[in-house]
Design a binder for these strands. Structure first.
Lengths: 203, 203
DNA sequence: GAGATGATTTACTGGAGAGTATATTGCATT
DNA sequence: AATGCAATATACTCTCCAGTAAATCATCTC
């Protein structure tokens, strides 16, 4: 099915979205590789063979670019939480499912960016939106823990401490995981999660 | 015992050291509070009522200031490892002792800075020294895990994964722990560590 | 074909802040 | 007194880069 060289509105829209996404991906990869402050928008533009004002055309200021990156990553995590929530099985099994997805997202481009981005890098307004989204993830994680304890599949724990401990352990791969390392992302994620919940099974 | 207003060499040396340390502490606190890139040396100097060249006099470039900060924090961690190593008791008990100290250091000024500092913030040479020291900590942690498994006080685990998991979980408080929060630093550290090693006791 | 609209560029401005040259003061040694 | 070193300041330079103004080119619409 050949595409007409005269795009209609939908194609136009799709092309715009594709470009937007390409810029975002180039930016997030560079931010992860060299750090946000060590990356100029000129660098990002050059890596795509375009010029800086084009980035402004599609995404806006550097602050907005970063906010888009972390928002995307945080949406991936939120989605993982919702998917796990709908899963059948015990509360602990659902928690495990979520934690594995959580770890995996943090090994990918946008998740890594979420972890490596400190609030002080964003404008006060963007930092607030960033914080709000992170709070949602935290709430989802705590809810899954609470439900696992409630249905007896998990030993009683302090919800706050457990959430921070699990999240911290599974955030860290954003800093050290190497896809060319000894274990695959999936295997590494399962391995870590099983170590974390080993002490949480009753009896 | 009144001190003569004419300092001898030792006093002179001590005063110099005290000033060096004061600058370092002011810097690390500001780096933690506002981020490294959002903190200028002029800011640090102003907070001490001095001027930027004085910082250069005592510590050198901004890169060197940051390297000193993280080196100090990493030495605290290394010391904690050595102390735990000399402790009596089972391998798991020694590991637990170390992990608690590790968590506590990461809640203090210099430890927090270690966690919040990415390699891309340092010059290539400083980043290499940073990496080397972090590798030493990792080696110490793995050794403690290995010994705990060897003497049977800890269930067999993948040393690499366990080290990353524990370290990640206990690094994270650098980002969220609040000394004015519901639990003291010590209690929080113990709480997290006990959750982490709950699954590691045999049987 | 005459504008309106979108995509993209070149070329600039403005500000921040790292690092330095140079001056000043003062004690310390001879 | 003369010289030298330690401590500190003022005032500058130089670079980098975010953000913008204005121009160009290409379509689509009427």
């Amino acid at each position: 099915m050949p595409v007409s060289p005269f795009p209609d509105d939908a194609q136009r829209q799709a092309s715009r979205e594709a470009k937007r996404k390409a810029v975002l991906l180039a930016a997030v990869r560079m931010f992860n590789a060299r750090g946000f402050h060590a990356t100029s928008l000129d660098d990002v533009a050059a890596s795509l063979g375009i010029s800086k004002p084009t980035i402004y055309h599609y995404l806006g200021t550097k602050d907005q670019v970063l906010l888009e990156c972390v928002t995307f990553g945080l949406h991936q995590l939120l989605e993982a939480a919702e998917t796990a929530r709908r899963q059948p099985g015990t509360g602990l099994a659902r928690l495990r499912t979520f934690l594995i997805s959580y770890a995996r997202v943090n090994m990918e481009d946008f998740g890594r960016c979420v972890i490596r981005t400190g609030e002080e890098m964003l404008s006060p307004e963007s930092a607030e939106r960033f914080r709000d989204l992170k709070r949602e993830i935290d709430a989802a994680l705590r809810a899954l823990i609470r439900e696992a304890v409630a249905d007896g599949s998990m030993v009683p724990v302090d919800e706050r401490i457990a959430a921070f401990t699990f999240a911290g352990a599974l955030n860290w791969p954003a800093r050290w995981f190497d896809p060319d390392g000894p274990e695959s992302a999936q295997a590494t994620a399962e391995h870590m999660v099983d170590l974390l919940i080993a002490g949480c099974t009753p009896r």
